[in-house]
Design a protein around this nucleic acid. Structure first.
Length: 478
RNA sequence: GGCCCCAUCGUCUAUCGGUUAGGACAUCAGGUUUUCAUCCUGAAAAGCGGGGUUCGACUCCCCGUGGGGUCACCA
């Protein structure tokens, strides 16, 4: 426990959809800040003009909000360290880069991209690590001034010290040590005047007084560069925690687009509840002390500790997500049906008979795994069905089925349309002729719904209505 | 390939030197049920390999193996 206020941040870049892995990290940063009464900052890292996607920044923010998370400081809400969009902070980075040049921790580099590529290529051929050859590192002050005055393109690079041990502590992994010789003289300021990620994060995290950096494991190996930068500036580095990445559901390889949708928004669009998704992200790679699977955001904020995050990359277990979502849907049915109905709206087909929703929903809610399942589970109530003849005649010949259908028609035609009356009639027909239960009831089910799996038969028939039921009985074999 | 990280049931995990290695999802079987689902009960299922350290290792150390990450004027 420290006395410095806890401030965390997430800094997505607007180059596409927000990845579920990134979202999961947002959740952790959010929870940790809340747990310690600190602030969670959202910063947009739009320093790559080439890859930037129009509108992605706004969509990013909307997705996070759709999950029910919020930030204390950010591009839209402002804050004491505004602006929170890096492209609006360019002057700061240039100033800091120049500071580093002044102090000898960085230098101007005039090498062309072609030359750099050639150097890398050569290194690869010779099976050496592809590093910049430091051609410009020893340029004299005069040479630099001269080249700058010639208006040539340049970048500013970090002057990485030779053979130095860089040690830092990761909250999840403990002490990590690397030798500076493997670190490239990283570009800090690009020739277009924009900073690279490495310069920008360090400058901004320091400026915004970020106390804990929780980010994806893919940043683990560039952390030494950041440590070097903190040292060069004379700043105290924050606490680092590198969070394992998500693997594909089969446990092989980083979760990627090629294996299906990986954007945080897409799961919402598919009919997963934000609460269930949040819960899933919580327990993937972390378990509360009592090992329970169902945990609310409030509880998570209380109980989460980044030190307890699993060290290993974890498979994105869709089966578990599906189960969790079902649990949440059933829970919502028990606790707040109005809310369930509201959430379902987006996924309800336009031809769904709203007037019958109160009758249909009780029959299908516990079968919903995703909200979007509503269509498939209810369509026979309001759309024409197609009866598979071979299924209908699977356990009885045509004569028998035809007879059964006639008997049902006659019986049902007579009665008052209630579940109990329907049940009485259908059962008595079955008993009277001693029809095989599984044949008879399955035949009826298929005849009136076209499906092998449906909610309980008598309730279903009641909701279907007399007209539709009788018509389907009549048409079943045609 | 270099460097870094990691390693308990199929999956996510508990254990933190002494346990019949526990739980959840998935799977299978049984019960409830006319189907499916829900619900209940039960079963099968794990310490990557080899060396140490120790009276005793899943647990600590080393090597191997396997997996992952990273090596850009991308983040």
């Amino acid at each position: 426990m420290t006395n410095t206020p806890v401030r965390t941040r997430m800094a997505p870049s607007p180059t596409g959809e927000l990845h579920v892995g990134s979202f999961s990290i947002i959740l952790k940063n959010y929870a940790f800040a809340k747990k310690h009464g600190g602030q969670f900052v959202l910063r947009v890292e739009d320093t790559d003009k080439v890859r930037e996607v129009e509108g992605a920044g706004e969509r990013l923010l909307n997705t996070i909000k759709a999950y029910g998370l919020s930030w204390d400081e950010g591009p839209d809400v402002g804050g004491p360290h505004a602006p929170y969009t890096q492209s609006e902070r360019l002057d700061l980075y240039v100033e800091k880069a120049n500071e580093l040049v002044e102090s000898g921790h960085a230098y101007h580099c005039f090498c062309s991209r072609e030359k750099l590529e050639a150097v890398r290529e050569k290194a690869r051929e010779e099976k050496r690590p592809p590093k910049y050859d430091r051609h410009c590192r020893n340029l004299s002050k005069e040479e630099v001034v001269k080249k700058l005055s010639e208006n040539g393109e340049f970048v500013i690079r970090l002057a990485v010290p030779d053979n130095r041990s860089i040690v830092y502590t990761d909250l999840i992994r403990g002490d990590i040590e690397v030798n500076s010789d493997i670190i490239d003289d990283q570009v800090l300021l690009k020739s277009d005047g924009f900073p690279t990620y490495h310069l920008a994060v360090v400058v901004d995290d320091n400026d915004m007084e970020i106390s804990h950096i929780m980010r994806g494991e893919e940043w683990l190996s560039s952390t030494p560069k950041h440590i070097l930068l903190y040292e060069a500036f004379g700043w105290k580095p924050p606490v680092f925690a590198h969070i394992p990445i998500y693997l594909n559901p089969n446990g092989k390889g980083k979760m990627s687009k090629r294996k299906g949708d990986v954007s945080a928004q897409s799961f919402l669009d598919k009919g997963y509840l934000p609460e269930a998704l949040l819960n899933f992200f919580m327990i993937l790679g972390w378990t509360p002390k009592d090992q329970r699977d169902i945990i609310s955001l409030e509880e998570y904020v209380q109980e989460f500790d980044p030190q307890d995050i699993s060290k290993k990359s974890v498979a994105f277990d869709i089966d578990k997500l599906n189960w969790l979502n079902g649990v949440y849907i059933r829970k919502m049915w028990d606790e707040n049906q109005v809310d369930l109905v509201t959430r379902l709206e987006k996924f309800t087909p336009t031809d769904f008979p709203q007037a019958k929703l109160d009758q249909i929903l009780p029959l299908i809610y516990e079968r919903l795994e995703k909200l979007s399942d509503i269509e498939e589970l209810s369509d026979f109530f309001y759309r024409d069905i197609k009866v598979d003849r071979s299924l209908l005649l699977k356990k009885a010949d045509k004569e028998l089925v035809s007879k059964q259908l006639d008997e049902l028609y006659a019986g049902l035609n007579e009665i008052e349309w209630t579940t109990s009356e329907i049940e009485k009639v259908v059962r008595s027909i079955q008993e009277e002729h001693d029809y095989k239960k599984n044949q008879f009831f399955m035949m009826v089910r298929i005849a009136v719904t076209g499906k092998k799996a449906t909610p309980p038969l008598f309730e279903t028939i009641e909701v279907l209505g007399k007209d539709l039921t009788l018509r389907r009985l009549k048409l079943a074999l045609t």
